[in-house]
């Protein structure tokens, strides 16, 4: 079936579309994000500084007994590669945890079991009851529970999952006194500014309140068990550092894949190319695209293009991937979404 496609104006350097909030192009057609982008020397310098700080931190932590690092492990390629780095390159004693949102692909779950064993890491699977998750996901798409800025980098559903995964991770790290909390964010997903930082109880209280409020509202206050409580903050001897190593280490997708395939990781055939672990993702993307008028991954892909990790053509082709109708239908059925979301023709994907 031929679909009528209307051309979308995009930044001539990255791929951000004219529908992206607040975007403006100069005469050359370049967006303000590209214009403000620091030069490669500046970025190299920032990365080197972060790497040095991280290595220093690792030196301090490594002699300690117990777990050195708690890794938020989705089973996708980036977090699996990060896990390998932490264990093998940095020699850390890692505990991995996976937040199961009820939609992790069976291949990803198998990958988690196989890789954990082959790599020799302990892991914890946290699986909140599905009726609660369902309530949260339905709320994430049905009302504007997140401020617009939160939706620039991820769909409402992704925001909900990330809030839960971060909450669970932070609570585990505080309960078990693990000094480092690691994430597998790829260079496009997390700005360099948040690649290595330590939060403090006072700021954390403020952010926890903000992160929990929409989820508490959607569930009549049932998400408490997945977030740190005041007692965790009060009794903490030290606050964990947060680190996203892929933000400042060398990262090449092809060699990362080779590395993890050597550990028995297999690319799931049942998810879309933007996510190697989550079946909910393509549905979440579709809803976001329809509600916001731009693809939730466009900022991430644009960053990857801007920083030279991905070609413009490759990024554009990832936006054009249509959601699998079977997967979307299965997600809708599992979430019992009451009405059909309008399908967007692939050419309109932004």
């Amino acid at each position: 079936m031929e679909q009528q496609t209307k051309p979308v104006k995009r930044c001539t350097r990255c791929i951000l579309p004219e529908t992206f909030p607040g975007i403006h192009f100069d005469e050359a057609g370049t967006c303000q994000f590209c214009r403000r982008q620091p030069g490669p020397e500046k970025r190299t310098e920032r990365k080197a500084r972060l790497r040095a700080r991280f290595e220093e931190l690792v030196e301090q932590i490594r002699p300690r007994p117990g777990y050195h690092c708690l890794m938020a492990w989705s089973g996708g390629k980036d977090s699996t590669y990060t896990l390998w780095l932490l264990k093998k390159q940095f020699g850390l004693h890692v505990l991995a945890f996976t937040f199961d949102n009820g939609f992790i692909s069976p291949t990803a779950l198998k990958n988690i079991r196989v890789v954990a064993e082959n790599l020799g890491v302990d892991y914890i699977l946290t699986k909140p009851r599905f009726d609660l998750l369902r309530q949260l996901f339905v709320a994430s798409i049905q009302s504007d529970i997140y401020p617009p800025r939160a939706l620039e980098r991820a769909s409402g559903i992704c925001n909900t999952c990330m809030a839960l995964a971060k909450g669970i991770g932070l609570r585990l790290a505080l309960e078990r006194e693990i000094p480092l909390l690691a994430y597998g964010w790829s260079p496009g997903q997390a700005p360099l500014s948040s690649a290595l930082f330590r939060t403090n109880p006072s700021m954390l209280r403020t952010f926890l309140r903000a992160a929990m409020a929409p989820l508490q509202k959607a569930t009549d206050g049932k998400v408490q068990p997945y977030f740190p409580q005041e007692r965790h903050l009060e009794t903490a001897q030290e606050m964990p550092y947060n680190v996203s190593p892929l933000g400042f280490l060398e990262y090449d997708e092809a060699s990362a894949l080779r590395r993890i395939e050597g550990l028995g990781w297999q690319r799931p055939q049942d998810t879309d190319p933007n996510s190697t672990n989550c079946l909910l993702n393509s549905f979440a993307n579709q809803v976001h695209l329809e509600q916001m008028g731009y693809h939730p991954y466009v900022m991430e892909l644009a960053s990857l293009v801007r920083e030279g990790y991905m070609s413009r053509e490759e990024a554009l082709s990832r936006l054009k991937v249509a959601a699998s109708p079977e997967v979307v239908a299965a997600v809708r059925a599992k979430l019992r979404i009451p009405h059909r979301w309008r399908q967007q023709p692939p050419g309109d994907r932004q």
Binding site: P147, R149, A150, A190, P191, S193, S194, F197, T199, M203, F207, A210, A211
Partner: peptide, 9 residues
């Protein structure tokens, strides 16, 4: 909600 946890950094 002008600045979130990533924004502060």
């Amino acid at each position: 909600g002008i600045v979130d946890s990533t924004g502060v950094l």
